[in-house]
Nucleic acid binder design. Structure first.
Length: 264
DNA sequence: CCCCTATCCTGAGGGC
DNA sequence: TGCCCTCAGGATAGGG
């Protein structure tokens, strides 16, 4: 989003090519084309894992990248990579391309309130990167939850934007076992967790993303956050704090890595 | 309200 | 070398 913003804001959409209509969840392809062509980009924002490209006329082009989605700016004559599902030609010359091999992502168009009311956008919890995150009420929500801490962190209605990697990293930094029931956390542990989560996410953005499989920035380049992860992808390897073997398990159907000695 | 599991989907990696 | 199997996971639906 941060890469795309300076190039997109002010640009006008000339041509729309929806190569795989099924990635568009709302509205229908004809309405989509009608609502996008000729519009100017007024803003590029983010809410949770959703990228909102604001268009003149008041509607947002909303993109969720799923697991393997990429949104990149390219020259229109660049060869088309496989699994490119949407091309938006910009009158300024370049082209915005949405690509997603596994197709867990999706594209929407509409006003946020409208998309929410038709069920195309879910209710989202507070933003870890917002200044008021610690005071957002997330602590109270966690203390009422009987679920595993990690499961709660992955619930987008509890915390917006946290994915599997950062849930594990945050629990490790806060020295909390990810399968610990959220409502049994001490105040001190909760405080550490609510500090650790924004910290790991900021760090990952600073390193331009964890490109362990498919993540790419706005120009198709990889990030290097993967190299600085302390637990994710390190199951069986020594804990960097105490040296004991990191345990790999499944919590809520997700691969989970933690240190059973450091995390209690 | 919560949990678990299946589903969607492709590509990488291991075993043979 | 090629084939088959398993695994990875964000969100959601369905059953318990």
């Amino acid at each position: 989003m941060r890469d795309l913003r300076p190039h997109l804001v002010g640009a006008r959409v000339g041509r729309v090519d929806l190569l795989r209509p099924s990635v568009l969840r709302f509205p229908d392809p004809d309405s989509f084309r009608l609502g996008v062509v000729g519009r100017r980009v007024t803003s590029v924002r983010r809410r949770g894992k959703f990228i909102h490209v604001g268009l003149s006329g008041g509607e947002d082009l909303v993109v969720h990248l799923g697991m393997t989605g990429t949104l990149t700016l390219q020259d229109p004559d660049q060869p088309l990579q496989p699994h490119t599902h949407l091309r938006l030609g910009l009158e300024e010359g370049r082209e915005l391309r949405y690509r997603d091999p596994r197709r867990f992502g999706r594209v929407l168009l509409g006003r946020p309130e409208q998309l929410q009311s038709v069920g195309a956008l879910p209710r989202l919890g507070p933003e870890p990167l917002a200044a008021n995150f610690a005071a957002s009420g997330v602590a109270a929500v966690l203390l009422r939850s009987t679920r595993a801490v990690k499961t709660a962190l992955l619930d987008q209605a509890v915390v917006a934007g946290c994915g599997n990697i950062y849930a594990d990293e945050a629990c490790y930094r806060a020295r909390i076992r990810p399968d610990r029931r959220a409502n049994t956390l001490s105040r001190a542990q909760l405080g550490r967790l609510l500090e650790a989560l924004p910290a790991v996410m900021r760090e990952a953005v600073r390193r331009r993303g964890a490109s362990f499989s498919d993540y790419r920035d706005g120009f198709g380049a990889k990030g290097e956050a993967y190299e600085s992860l302390l637990v994710y992808g390190r199951g069986g390897l020594p804990c960097l704090r105490c040296g004991s073997s990191l345990r790999q398990s499944r919590i809520g159907g997700r691969t989970t890595v933690y240190c059973s000695r450091c995390q209690r």
